Amino acid sequence: MERETEPRVYGWEPGEPAGPTAGHDYAELVGGPLDGLLLDVTGWTVADRAGGALLIADLGLYGPGGRADYAPDDDDAGGPFRWRGDTA
């Protein structure tokens, strides 16, 4: 029987909890090299969320130091951030 694990948060540092922290808001990252991670969007405005994020993704198309473009669907700024592609 497989054990469900708590999702990891993008950008966690050793010594910090790898999972979600109470009182924080998260967007799930869907698709691409960061699929399944959570992005801490605590304090982001609706406009901030709509703009999405370019996130460092060592496993992406451009290797270490490359960026993965994630953004919510146009009609759902409060929803998950979907992968749009990679950039250098």
Score class of each variant (00 low, 15 high):
E2P: 01
E2G: 12
E2I: 11
E2Q: 08
R3I: 13
E4R: 10
E4Q: 06
E4F: 04
E4N: 09
T5W: 09
E6D: 07
P7M: 09
P7G: 11
P7F: 12
R8C: 10
R8D: 09
V9P: 01
V9C: 11
Y10I: 08
G11S: 11
G11Y: 00
G11A: 12
W12D: 11
W12H: 15
W12M: 13
E13V: 15
E13H: 06
P14M: 07
G15D: 14
G15A: 15
E16P: 04
P17M: 13
P17C: 15
A18V: 09
G19N: 14
G19Q: 15
P20M: 04
P20T: 05
A22T: 11
G23C: 11
G23N: 11
H24Y: 01
D25M: 12
D25G: 06
Y26W: 02
Y26I: 02
Y26R: 01
Y26A: 09
A27C: 15
A27Q: 07
L29W: 02
L29Q: 02
V30R: 11
G31S: 11
G32M: 05
P33V: 07
P33A: 08
P33T: 14
P33Y: 06
D35S: 15
D35K: 09
D35I: 06
D35R: 04
G36H: 02
G36Q: 04
L37W: 05
L37N: 00
L38W: 06
L39P: 00
D40M: 13
D40E: 10
D40S: 06
V41E: 05
T42N: 03
T42R: 10
W44Q: 12
T45F: 03
V46T: 12
V46S: 07
V46K: 12
V46Q: 12
D48N: 13
D48Y: 08
D48T: 08
R49C: 04
A50L: 10
G51I: 10
G52R: 02
L54F: 04
I56P: 00
A57T: 01
D58A: 15
G60L: 14
G60S: 13
G60N: 13
G60K: 05
L61A: 14
L61H: 10
Y62F: 15
G63R: 12
G63Q: 02
G65P: 01
G66P: 01
G66L: 06
G66Y: 07
R67Q: 11
R67D: 02
A68S: 14
A68P: 00
D69Q: 07
Y70L: 06
Y70Q: 03
A71G: 01
A71H: 00
P72D: 01
D73S: 10
D73K: 07
D74E: 14
D74K: 08
D76W: 00
D76T: 04
D76I: 00
A77M: 00
A77E: 04
G78D: 13
G78Q: 08
G78L: 11
G78M: 05
G79L: 08
G79I: 03
P80D: 09
R84S: 03
D86M: 07
T87Q: 06
T87A: 06
